[in-house]
């Protein structure tokens, strides 16, 4: 791995497997009464959240704390950022406080990249979701969850369904799952597929029913109802009829197939309540796995950075 995690496109297959294998070891901690390791004692992780995302923030917070790191939560609301402070000044402030890793969530695509390449900070930058670009740790936890249920992802079929255009989860998953050898199909109405998607290492389809029959994983993306106001689709009901995972479609899934959703869900819109709560749904498990995967990312980025005890196969800066 490099010294930052900005895009899953930067990960080689070896990098990705190292994260997933490390996460598998760390996941066993979750079932122990004492969940803490001393690995990152004395290191400081800053959660820099310019957008509200309680779920992602507490997942990173739990991950850092289970590795004994000090955690500083910096939320844009009510802080100097809401008073017009620039990303640069915020970054310089964090740097002055001695952050070893900055976990950044930002509404502007590329903001983590900017933070990592600008020279404003020396710390590792972890992208926790940037605009409509990427959300690499979500993709890693998704891949981790798939592996637990399906084993090796090589040749596995994954359908990612919904608002691909605006989804950072879809981008990160398309790149990562392809790297891991899975066959990804993006399913969406034509209005919600990006121009240029034909250059991605994935297949695309406008027809959810055709994609479902042979899939091993169906991942439903959150679709904002407001999108219909910009004419991406006519109405929430029509979207749901054509692209929602309802009971009827659920029944046609292969027996071994799993259902995923990055959350938060619009029950009744992109996914029916029965489906979300079914035995094939791994949505709650995704959350548990998220902590383990984020522990692995923090561990590999931070503990590998300035120690020599890690032999070959460990991350390089």
């Amino acid at each position: 791995m490099k010294s930052h995690l900005l895009s899953t496109g930067d990960l080689t297959k070896g990098d990705a497997l190292r994260v997933l294998d490390t996460a598998a070891e760390l996941r066993s901690l979750a079932d122990r009464p004492i969940k803490k390791l001393p690995t990152l004692r004395g290191r400081t992780v800053v959660n820099l959240f310019f957008e509200d995302s309680t779920r992602t923030r507490i997942s990173f917070e739990a991950a850092a704390k289970r590795l004994s790191a000090d955690v500083i939560n910096f939320s844009a609301k009510g802080s100097s950022v809401s008073k017009g402070e620039s990303l640069k000044d915020t970054a310089l402030t964090l740097e002055a406080m001695g952050a070893d890793a900055v976990v950044i969530r930002h509404g502007s695509s590329g903001a983590p990249h900017r933070l990592a390449s600008s020279g404003w900070v020396r710390s590792s930058v972890i992208n926790a979701g940037d605009g409509t670009h990427e959300h690499p740790t979500q993709a890693l936890l998704d891949a981790f969850t798939m592996r637990r249920h399906l084993g090796d992802l090589d040749g596995r079929r994954v359908a990612i369904v919904g608002d691909v255009l605006h989804s950072r989860v879809a981008r990160s998953n398309a790149l990562l799952l392809s790297t891991l050898g899975a066959e990804v199909t993006l399913v969406a109405p034509p209005t919600l597929l990006p121009v240029g998607v034909s250059s991605w290492p994935v297949a695309t389809s406008y027809d959810l029913d055709a994609a479902l029959e042979k899939t091993d994983v169906v991942m439903m993306l959150r679709v904002q109802r407001e999108r219909m106001n910009a004419a991406f689709f006519p109405s929430a009901r029509e979207y749901s009829r054509r692209y929602g995972l309802d009971d009827r479609r659920f029944a046609r899934l292969p027996d071994h197939a799993i259902v995923m959703h990055p959350g938060p869900m619009n029950r009744g819109m992109e996914i029916a309540a029965n489906v979300a709560d079914s035995h094939r749904s791994v949505i709650v498990e995704q959350v548990t796995n998220g902590v383990a995967v984020r522990m692995a990312v923090l561990y590999l980025l931070l503990s590998g950075a300035d120690t020599t005890e890690h032999a070959a196969g460990e991350p390089t800066a």
């Binding site: 670009h133 990006p194 121009v195 998607v197």
Partner: peptide, 13 residues
């Protein structure tokens, strides 16, 4: 520019 790059970079085209 809307095209391959905007799709990859997650930018409004």
């Amino acid at each position: 520019n809307e095209g391959t790059m905007s799709g990859v970079l997650g930018m409004q085209g």
